[in-house]
Each structure stands twice: as structure tokens, then as C-alpha cells.
Design a protein around this nucleic acid. Structure first.
Lengths: 220, 220
DNA sequence: GAATTAATTGAACGTTTGTTTTATTGTCTA
DNA sequence: TAGACAATAAAACAAACGTTCAATTAATTC
């Protein structure tokens, strides 16, 4: 046999991407075989090579698009010119919702970096660094404006990102908490972590009002 | 050829463990071949099967021992009967130093869970849950004693563990910061994150004194 | 110093791997 | 309706995989 009735290149390629993300997230890149992926799509293994020259190119494409999506999402959301507090809140919200909504894709991008060639790895890490740099800038501005109390900007940025991305390890859609609730709680934790000085006389004792406001902000 | 001069079972087994941790951490479990591991040890692939019945058994042994070591380290360090603040500080210090000192082993235990059979996975997860339960108990006690301000104990415990374990992603021994400095900074961040009420009138503004005390505590 | 045990080699097994090649069929265009 | 092109199947490739087995030698025991 050969070409099957109703076959369409674009649809097949999309199906390959989707199946690959799910399969790599579940089994790992090395453990997933091209035959397995092809079977999931409902096609022969050879057909995959019409869309991706090699297995590693497929992985790279998935990762690149994930990072591009993340950076684009932030670019579209970030409140330019706003105060560091609002910018930090926007960063946290964007980061968490993006990663929860793309759990599988995030898993792939975080776990399979070592399967990339040096050259491709560099490309992905460049994007990642650019994204993280935005958070460091927010923290630095906040410290300069005397809004945050931070010992080490770089270290705090890494700690925050690890904490936020870690959500996908335990969170499952349809859990006890909604995405908005999780995001609100993480936002409150973030604000305390950076020692944020909220409007007036709020001390470390009463995180509740901050928590409340975070929730409101997300409800819109 | 056959048995080589000076060969010793115990030494070989230890060398296999060590090489396996390093190799799996760098390449991943699936990507590492038994022949590669054998070459690193300076032995033929068949010799490995004298010590570990299968490749997966080797992985499981490494993970089990890592978890046993972590739990034992905490058991030996934990200040029983102390107040939640001191217990939390001890937990953070133990967790971070343990993981930094065993970066490779931690990488293996965190990244290769999916390569375990259902039965072996359950065993590892049981240990992990028991360890995390300790942190949740500390947080709960702290909230009850009105020492912490936390929205959700379980969620906060996960966030803290993700944040702390994440250290191994970016930290390299011999970095700008020493292990003690990193631990001290993470301790300060943790205390703010849980809204810890320090001795007297400390608010969210002045984290510096807390930071200073954390450093002192670690210097001993 | 002979017998026994411990440690390892080297070759081989059947599978599975990523990838390539060739042939075949559906779909679109003129 | 003929020809061009797109999309796939089927078979084959060499290489690498985890693992087993029999043979062999070093160390230990008696």
C-alpha cells in the first residue's frame, strides 16, 4: 500500500507533534521509539521522516516551540512601565498558568535537555536565559525602589523559578485546587519570599490581605 | 582471559555504583549502556551481572540508597521537641546540604523515576512521601503555634521542596557562593515564605537580622 | 601443593533501534 | 483524463542493545 485515503500532511505533522510531546513526557525521549510514536499517530515509522529529518530534530522542534511560546506569552502579558510589584505578580501568574496548561511540554523541555547536541542545547539555553533575565530585572528594580528585601537577586530568581515550575510535578488538572487558586497561593508565597512591602503597614504577620488581593487580581 | 590480578568484588561493586551514578546523571538511564558503564569501570559488560541482576535493579539500588541516606541524615539531625522554627531551619539545612553534596545521586533519583517498574516505583515514592510528611508536620505545628502564616500546608511543603532541591540545577561546588552561604540564603527565603514570626518585632522589611542569625547557626 | 571458590573474559543470542530506499497509491491541476 | 506531486507503506540496513553461557585464571582454603 501507499498513500491512504484522506491523508493530509499538515494534519499528520500536527498529530506527530502532539503524540511526541505526550509520549516523551511519559516515557522519556530515549525510551520512546519512532515506531511507537508512529503507531500512536496511526502511521508507519518511515512516514515520520517526511516531517522531521531525525529523532533529535523532532525533540529540538518541540523544545524550541515551547520556549518561543513561553517568551511570547510573557511578551504579550508583561505590564511595561508598571511598578516592580505589579510586574512580579504578572510574571508569576504568566509563568504558572503557562506551565500548568502545558505540563507535558514543560516536562519535555526540562527533562530532555541532555539529549540535545551541544549546538541545539546552546540555542535552547539562550532562550531560557533571556526569559529568566526578565525576572532578575524585576527583582533588581524592586530592590532599588526599596520594595523588596532580597539577599541575592540571581539566587532568588532561580529559587522562584524552580519553585514555580515545580508545580507541574504534583499539580493535576481537576485537583482539589483550581489553577487560579494555585496561582494565587504561589503569588502570595512569592511576595513574602521577596520581602515585598505591600501598600502600607503590612508586616510578615498578616499575609492574608495580600493573599486576598492576589485572588481578586486573578478573578478578572 | 579471566580473573584479573588484584580483582576484588567489593571494590568492583563500589566502582560500578559510583560510575553508574555519574553516567546516569550525565546521560540518563536509558541513554547509558551497560557496555559504556563497564568500560568506565574498566571491566567487561558481563562482569556487571555478578553484582546486579538487571540494569533496572542497578537503578533501583542507587535510588533506594539515596532515599535511605536522606532519611537517615534527617533522622540523625532533627531536633526533636524543639519549636517549629528551629525544626524548620534544621530541615532546610539538612535538605540543602545533603542534596548539594550528592548532586549526581539526586539527579538520578529525581529524573529516572519513570524507568522503574510499578512495584519499585511505589517503594521509592513511599520513602519520599514519608520524608516530605516530616516537613508538612513542621509547617502544621508552626501554624498551630501561630508562628507561621501559611495558606495551604501541603502546597507550601511542595513549593519549598521544589525550591530547595532546585539548587542542584544551577549550583556548582566552587561557585561564587559557598554551600553555607547558599544554605543561609535559602533559609532566609524559607522563613519569609512561611511568614515566620521571628523572636520579637521583626517585620517583612528587615530580613537582614534573620539572615545574619541563619549564617551564625550554620557556622558552628 | 592440591582443591575450591571468586572474579572475570570473550563470544554469542535474539531483539530492537534509527534511518533509508523503493514502490505504490491518493489527490490535485491543467 | 493525463500527468505531476504529495503522502504513505513495506522491506531492508547495519549497529547497538540487555543479557546469558561456558571457559579461564587469580585468590583462598585445607
Amino acid at each position: 500500500m501507499a498513500r491512504t485515503t484522506g491523508s493530509d500532511g499538515e494534519k499528520t505533522e500536527a498529530a506527530v507533534r502532539e503524540a511526541a510531546i505526550s509520549l516523551i513526557a511519559r516515557l522519556g525521549y530515549e525510551a520512546m521509539s519512532m515506531r511507537q510514536l508512529a503507531a500512536e499517530v496511526g502511521v508507519q515509522a518511515a512516514a515520520l521522516y517526511r516531517y522531521f529529518p531525525t529523532k533529535q530534530d523532532l525533540l529540538f522542534t518541540l523544545m524550541r516551540e515551547h520556549m518561543e511560546g513561553l517568551i511570547e506569552a510573557w511578551r504579550a502579558t508583561r505590564p511595561v512601565g508598571a511598578d516592580p510589584l505589579a510586574r512580579l505578580a504578572a510574571y508569576v501568574e504568566n509563568h504558572i498558568t503557562f506551565h500548568i496548561e502545558r505540563r507535558h511540554s514543560t516536562h519535555v523541555s526540562n527533562m530532555e535537555l541532555r539529549s540535545l547536541s551541544h549546538e541545539k542545547l546552546t540555542q535552547i539555553l539562550r532562550m531560557r536565559t533571556a526569559y529568566e533575565k526578565e525576572l532578575r530585572a524585576i527583582l533588581r528594580d524592586g530592590v532599588e525602589a526599596d520594595l523588596f528585601s532580597i539577599e541575592d537577586t540571581g539566587l532568588t530568581a532561580m529559587a522562584l523559578i524552580q519553585m514555580m515550575t515545580g508545580v507541574i510535578v504534583w499539580f493535576r488538572p481537576g485537583d482539589r485546587l483550581s489553577i487560579a487558586e494555585v496561582t494565587a497561593t504561589y503569588l502570595a508565597m512569592t511576595m513574602r519570599l521577596v520581602g515585598a512591602k505591600t501598600d502600607g503597614a503590612s508586616t510578615s504577620h498578616d499575609a492574608a490581605p495580600l493573599f486576598g488581593r492576589a485572588k481578586d487580581a486573578l478573578a478578572t
